[in-house]
């Protein structure tokens, strides 16, 4: 390679390396702002502010959803399997909302540790499958837990 081109190439590579380091440091410093939501462990540890509108995200805990029969009020717990936060919400839930599904709620965290949401969004994972397959998987996992329960009783 021609020496001038070699020199230009090194300049270009240095430019790229310097730029990547700068961007990496900036995004690392701002990571809490880039994160879309606080997870329940962070809220339990008191990392989330109580005086500002924040987002909380996690899984809807199995068996925690209580729907008010007279209004659109819903209460449920959001968990990341190490901590959970009680959430109350008044309004229409997205179609994908279900127990065991991921959600992101926007609202305020009360001083009593309850999260009052004014918007609930559904979050889904990267897995796609036909309904029959998902039904079969569910059946298999249920059979497994039943078998485990049976062996436990003996």
């Amino acid at each position: 390679m021609h020496p001038i081109r070699k020199k230009r190439l090194t300049i270009v590579l240095f430019l790229l390396a310097g730029l990547s380091v700068a961007v990496a440091l900036t995004t690392y410093a701002l990571r809490q702002n880039i994160n879309l939501f606080y997870d329940p462990s962070q809220i339990a540890a008191g990392e989330a502010p109580t005086d500002a509108r924040i987002r909380a995200g996690g899984m809807v805990e199995e068996g925690s959803v209580i729907r008010d029969p007279d209004s659109l009020k819903v209460e449920f717990k959001v968990t990341d399997y190490s901590a959970s936060v009680p959430v109350e919400y008044m309004g229409i839930l997205p179609d994908l909302f279900a127990e065991g599904q991921g959600i992101v709620a926007m609202g305020r965290l009360g001083t009593d540790g309850r999260f009052v949401a004014d918007q609930v969004l559904a979050k889904h994972d990267e897995n796609y499958m036909p309904p029959e397959v998902s039904g079969a998987l569910e059946k298999a996992s249920k059979a497994q837990t039943e078998a485990a329960a049976e062996t436990a009783t003996y």
Binding site: I34, N35, L36, P94, D95, L96, Q119, V120, L121, A122, K123, H124
Partner: peptide
């Protein structure tokens, strides 16, 4: 819109 419940969100 039909899956998350919003057109746009300022996520990363």
């Amino acid at each position: 819109k039909p899956t998350w419940g919003t057109w746009w969100i300022w996520d990363a």
